[in-house]
């Protein structure tokens, strides 16, 4: 739970917001679930558009397994999800584009990347390009929305933030920097509706020729020593790994201890 950070949205109007959601996959067990980033995107959507102004769409198959995962989004307090039925191996972008054109939202929220399939994170970019809308990545929070622009906070590394003014309509992607998604409740998940929509299917030709395999472990990069003499190479290989007990200052004055700490803080560059 993050209680700090200013995440209060001020000066909001009732804007039409869409969120694109996918079926995720648990990293440990591989079970279907709501995708982590998509759920965070929905969370931002809920903070912007309470009630019926948040529209969710999922493009893909609607098997019983994926239905349970989609219902987890409903459990966040969403009335319904439009399921654009697309078989496996279809290019979902045209279907989503058509859905968005029809809906005409001011803001489209997407998770930065899916958790199944190619998970290339391209969909928001393709949609923004084809629709000609603005695109912002790594959204941390939406501060305010008015008629044709919004002020958002973009997440930079290490908790830093950057304020952007973005012209609407816009597509934004959400990743780990945004607030975690709220709990999914059983009752709303059961009551909510999955509207299955038949949409034209565009096969994804490129992907036909790919081979997909379970991820192989990547080899750890070895520290390669460029040395011409065998002795140097041996010395480098046999050198004791660094570390193995740090420096312990016993019986020093508080002043001396503080100086040693300050020196390390400076070396690491964390002192501003």
């Amino acid at each position: 739970m993050q209680r700090d950070g200013n995440r209060n949205v001020t000066g909001q109007e009732r804007v039409k917001v869409a969120a694109l959601v996918s079926v995720g996959r648990h990293p440990v067990t591989g079970r279907p679930r709501r995708a982590e980033y998509d759920a965070r995107a929905v969370e931002i959507g809920l903070s912007l558009a309470t009630g019926g102004n948040l529209h969710l769409a999922h493009a893909g198959e609607c098997s019983p397994e994926s239905e349970a995962a989609l219902r987890a989004y409903l459990g966040m307090g969403i009335a319904g999800v439009d399921v654009l039925q697309q078989p496996a191996g279809a290019d979902i972008v045209p279907a989503l584009e058509a859905w968005l054109r029809e809906l005409g939202p001011r803001l489209v929220l997407c998770g930065a990347r899916g958790e199944t399939g190619e998970a290339s994170g391209l969909v928001p970019f393709l949609l923004a390009e084809r629709l000609g809308w603005s695109l912002v990545c790594g959204l941390a929070a939406v501060e305010s929305v008015d008629g044709d622009s919004m002020i958002v906070l973009q997440a930079l590394p290490r908790g830093q933030r950057r304020r952007l003014k973005v012209r609407l309509p816009a597509v934004v992607t959400v990743d780990a920097a945004a607030q975690p998604a709220r709990q999914s409740a059983f009752g709303p998940a059961r009551r909510g509706g999955l509207q299955r929509l038949d949409t034209p299917v565009t096969p994804d030709g490129d992907a036909q020729s790919w081979t997909t395999a379970p991820a192989r472990k990547r080899p750890k990069r070895l520290k390669i020593v460029k040395a011409t003499s065998a002795r140097d190479r041996f010395k480098a290989a046999a050198a004791k790994a660094e570390g193995g007990g740090g420096q312990v200052l016993t019986g020093v004055s508080a002043q001396a201890g503080a100086e040693a700490i300050l020196k390390l803080l400076r070396e690491e560059g964390v002192l501003r």
Binding site: E115, S209, T212, P214, A215
Partner: peptide
């Protein structure tokens, strides 16, 4: 252009990248 993302290996005119949030390897031209 269709890019290859999360690529960690290129060999013999093919590239291998992570898919499905790091769970799979996708190999393609």
């Amino acid at each position: 252009e269709r890019p290859a993302t999360q690529v960690w290996q290129i060999a013999n005119g093919e590239c291998t990248g992570r898919g499905a949030a790091g769970a799979t390897d996708v190999t393609r031209r």
